[in-house]
Simulated assay, not measured.
Amino acid sequence: MQSTNFIEFLKGLDPKPLYVLDKAMPLSSYVPIDLSDSNESLNEIDVASAEKLGAFVNNHIANHNAKVAYGGYLEVRNIYKRSTHFNKQAKEERNIHIAIDLWCEAKTPIYAPLNAKVHSFKNNTNYGDYGPTIILEHNVEHITFYTLYGHLSLESIDTLKVGQIFEQGEQIGSLGDAAVNGNYPPHLHFQIIRDLQGNLGDYPGVCAKQNLEFYKQNCPDPSYILHL
């Protein structure tokens, strides 16, 4: 399936929003947040500090009487400069986020947005990495694609099994804290992936500018199904 057709397929999955957080929490309680390198209000924040970045995010949520802050798809971020994990093999800096982040409290339950089976999972322990990660495989109308859930709790993968079935709306895990999630404020990295390219329990969530066109096609905007 060509990338444009895949995007149209995603848009047509359901006229209603699909949920990875509690469905009872309305989208009106979500607020967008800008964590890009062009956000001048971040200049005075040490974004390498989970505590200080967390305070920035939490204040943003509170100031908007919200429960969740969301955003980040194709956002160019300075936060990745703190870790060699994003630049050790690349000829060009990897700093473009190719997923959506949902910032909320640790232990927040995470749910399958569609019927799925567990493709793979892994604790990605590099500094600044995902920490505990689950990749679900979906097959809808004979089309197979994947969703990745990063920055989970250790409990999320303790008893998980490859091939395990989850029905739409069933809890798959919960959010981890900075001690296990790569040293970030609690949040879900939610990514759609067309072709996993042989990866297991991991897939790049940040890319370099030189590879952006490929990843835009292989990892479309999750807003197409979340309706954010």
Rank of each mutant, 00 (worst) to 15 (best):
N218C: 09
M1F: 08
A50F: 01
I165N: 10
L136A: 03
T144R: 10
L74W: 04
H142I: 04
Y146V: 01
A62T: 14
E137H: 02
I45A: 08
Q171S: 09
H189M: 03
W103H: 14
G201K: 03
F190L: 03
V57A: 09
Q2G: 07
D177Y: 08
H189W: 09
E92Y: 09
D101A: 10
I192P: 08
I157P: 00
L10G: 04
E155I: 02
G201H: 04
V140A: 02
A208Q: 08
A208P: 10
S156F: 02
S153N: 11
I110Y: 04
S223P: 00
S36C: 04
K16V: 08
P26Y: 03
K16H: 12
C207M: 07
L226M: 09
T144S: 15
F56P: 04
V206C: 04
L228A: 03
G12W: 06
F121Y: 14
E141P: 05
V31G: 01
G173W: 00
G12V: 10
D34F: 00
C219I: 08
A90T: 14
A208N: 13
K161A: 00
Q89P: 04
E105L: 13
K67Y: 07
L35M: 07
S36F: 03
Q2E: 11
E170S: 03
S38M: 05
D177N: 15
A55M: 07
I45P: 08
E137R: 01
N87A: 13
Y215C: 05
D37C: 07
R82L: 10
I172F: 01
L160H: 12
R194H: 14
D202F: 13
V76H: 15
V162R: 01
I143E: 10
W103Y: 14
V206S: 13
H119K: 06
D158N: 12
K216P: 04
H138G: 15
V206I: 15
E105V: 12
Y73A: 06
N181F: 05
Y203V: 12
V206F: 13
S174P: 09
V57C: 05
N115H: 13
D34H: 04
Q164P: 02
N87G: 13
Q2C: 11
S174Q: 11
Q197C: 11
S28F: 10
N59Q: 14
F56T: 06
Y149N: 01
L226E: 02
L102A: 09
K216I: 10
Q191E: 12
P32M: 06
L228P: 05
A208Y: 11
Q217K: 15
A179V: 12
L152C: 09
K81L: 15
G128Y: 00
N123E: 09
Q2P: 11
D202W: 13
I110A: 00
E167G: 06
N123V: 09
P185V: 07
A24I: 02
K209A: 14
L27K: 15
K88D: 04
L148S: 09
R77F: 12
K209L: 12
A66C: 12
Q197D: 14
S3D: 15
L152D: 03
N211W: 06
D101L: 11
Y70V: 12
G163D: 00
G54A: 01
L27M: 08
K88C: 07
P26I: 05
L35Q: 02
L160I: 10
D22C: 06
